[in-house]
């Protein structure tokens, strides 16, 4: 059953042109999706629209029967949709622990917050080690883990990650990937944007190829990986841009 239905969504920034041009997509529960596509295809914009950070100009976003299209970000989050943006969006002058507590901002139950905190520390031991450190002073990989840990504090149903391995060294990126794997196995629905399409598709159950603000191809990852059209059109490009020239 689809928990997230995006229908005919158009969206753009300010008075600028439509970045999303009537995009439709269905997301099934407890599946993982990897979104790929060239620069400017609208990948980040799509996630921002779902998260309520950008309101669609037309079309609708329905999550578990509720329309999110004109909700505030905090209202969207309250329904269980959590977004980790590309720049991780941490609070640099707050400690790791405070950042995690901010992740549970919508929760009132202190005992529950404590419980979640323990769970996140268990999943990311490094965060427990650095609990008192300012988030701004951590390495890129640690910041990414903090961002993911913070997202888990709210115990989301749908987790959206925008290029979580951006700018990270390969072995750190691998670590992040295995964490995502773990989240998947916990039953979370995960939507991930990944610049390294090959790796992203290997991780995810489904592949979605965006181009010019619409979904060009979608299907099981192996299919997308194997599809010669996709390979030729996007995989080459996307993979190529990840390599040094």
């Amino acid at each position: 059953m689809a928990i997230l239905e995006i229908t005919d969504v158009s969206a753009g920034y300010g008075a600028g042109p439509d970045i999303l041009q009537g995009l439709s997509l269905e997301v099934e529960e407890a599946q993982s999706y990897c979104i790929i596509g060239p620069n400017g295809a609208g990948k980040s914009t799509l996630l921002k629209v779902i998260a309520g950070l950008l309101h669609p100009r037309s079309g609708d976003v329905v999550f578990r029967g509720e329309s999110l299209a004109h909700r505030r970000p905090d209202q969207v989050l309250a329904t269980g949709v959590c977004f980790v943006p590309q720049d991780q969006a941490l609070f640099p002058e707050m400690s790791v622990r405070e950042n995690l507590i901010m992740g549970a901002y919508l929760l009132k139950d202190r005992a529950l917050i404590k419980e979640r905190l323990a769970r996140v520390y268990e999943m990311f031991p490094i965060l427990a080690e650095r609990a008192g450190q300012d988030a701004g002073k951590m390495s890129g990989g640690q910041q990414q883990m903090l961002a993911m840990g913070r997202a888990l504090m709210i115990d989301p149903i749908l987790l959206m990650l925008d290029e979580p391995t951006l700018g990270l060294a390969p072995q750190i990126a691998q670590q992040i990937f295995s964490q995502v794997e773990q989240l998947k196995s916990m039953g979370l629905t995960v939507v991930i944007i990944e610049q390294n399409a090959q790796r992203g598709l290997e991780l995810a159950d489904w592949g979605v190829v965006l181009d010019l603000g619409i979904v060009r191809f979608e299907g099981p990852s192996e299919g997308i990986l194997g599809d010669p059209r996709v390979r030729e059109l996007y995989l080459g490009k996307a993979a190529g841009s990840g390599e040094k020239k």
Binding site: G12, Y13, G14, A15, G16, P17, I19, N39, G40, A41, G42, K43, S44, T45, Q86, E163, L166, G167, L168, A169, P170, S241, G242, E243, K244, K245
Partner: peptide, 18 residues
Amino acid sequence: MIEDRAAMGPEDSAPEPT
């Protein structure tokens, strides 16, 4: 990879108001 991203610039950034 890091240097490469810098060269690529942010993706999906809001278009400059003309």
